[in-house]
Design a binder for these strands. Structure first.
Lengths: 222, 222
DNA sequence: GTCGAAATGTACTGACCTGACCATTTGGTT
DNA sequence: AACCAAATGGTCAGGTCAGTACATTTCGAC
């Protein structure tokens, strides 16, 4: 809300960067809430400090705005991931931390999840044209690849371990946990998505991923 | 296509059941392809043997049609699951089969997956009002609950094993594999979703679920 | 064969929504 | 202080789309 960035109000009026950012933020939330066709440019404009005119001035058309909002969502999430430093930890520990972090991070960013869901509905046609996003994701998997290599050198991870397949498994659990919460809790109740149960699922997921990666099974309670 | 049901062409014209079914089938594919707001009633009508008038006559409005199409999708999928008989197998084997089957079954029903994705985007508001769907899903989990109980009585499954949590894990992998294929393969390439790799992921998933359920780790190759 | 309810066809409306047009202001440059 | 490009405001045209009005046909019941 009152987060005044350095780009804000320099002279008085006319601050292109702040205007663009304002539009993007509103657009992200509107697209995430309603999907591409469900979102209304007029609604976005009205929730903005500026007018619809500016949206078309800066982003060309609705699709252009959507694509930029999608990129913004990825950027924000990957930014959070970048803060995580795992190089000083032993590989098993590092992997466990990464999984737990991803699980929590996805939960904390439902708008990002929704944007990816929407993009999947549209067969990733917009994402495919964005080299920005591809780069971001390749960077994200590098972190995992490093952990894998270290674990394999130490002999604690299996030789056949594939970072992309591992990323798939981590994403599957973390993503599904947010994306399918509405239908799942409509059917089975919402307890599974509240605190004690979420903790258990997260631990279960960490254990499962570790078991996949490790040559010797790590000790497990119960 | 040429699947002439007993309801087809009795006298000549006027066959309400066939008309409704025709509309539902087309609607399901249109909604699955384009989402709720993206779908066009006119498009649905034109792909039908009948007219838009009939859609409103039988289904009231767009939302009514959507809800019925969603139910139809669930019905079709649960029908396929019901054919699976696992009671004669030992619990571990039964669970392994169930996981592998679910994985394949989801892959074979992308329209169902897309409808559930869309419903999640809309916060399951339509699904919540459909007792038809809740019943179907409760039935689906009963099958899993039986396996769990048998395994626990035999002492091969952990006592704390929760059927709903297990269902969550099975669904997460099987669902994500279809739902996020577009974005995932746009970023990392499509090899992961083609034959040799899919087989590996499925096996990995089966192993992971079994490891979660079992007291003693089952033997694992490599 | 007549009658009424169910089923169906055609054309239309009113709202909505994207995108464009024309004019004006702002701020930096010379 | 004059000028120009960037930024902005207000308005509306053109098209789209969900839903409806009005009419006719079908078919089973009696």
């Amino acid at each position: 809300m009152a987060m005044t960035t350095e780009a804000d109000r320099r002279g008085w009026t006319q601050n292109p960067e702040a205007v663009k950012q304002d539009i993007l933020t509103v657009a992200l939330s509107e697209f995430a809430a309603n999907g591409f066709s469900g979102a209304r440019v007029d609604t976005i404009a009205s929730r903005t400090q500026t007018s619809k005119r500016m949206i078309y001035y800066y982003f060309g058309d609705k699709r252009g705005l959507y694509t930029r909002a999608l990129e913004a969502a990825y950027l924000k999430v990957r930014e959070g991931e970048a803060a995580l430093d795992l190089d000083h930890l032993p590989p098993q520990e590092a992997l466990a931390r990464l999984v737990a972090f991803t699980f929590d991070h996805h939960r904390a960013n439902p708008d990002f999840i929704r944007m990816v869901m929407i993009e999947n509905i549209h067969n990733a046609e917009n994402l495919a044209n964005s080299e920005v996003i591809r780069d971001l994701n390749v960077a994200a998997i590098d972190k995992l690849a490093v952990i894998c290599r270290r674990g394999q050198q130490d002999g604690v991870f299996r030789a056949a371990l594939d970072p992309v397949a591992l990323h798939w498994q981590i994403s599957a659990a973390s993503f599904f946990n947010v994306s399918n919460r509405p239908t799942f809790s409509a059917i089975f109740g919402s307890e599974l998505f509240e605190e004690p149960a979420q903790e258990a699922i997260r631990q279960q997921t960490v254990d499962a991923i570790l078991a996949m990666a490790c040559t010797t099974q790590p000790a497990r309670p119960t």
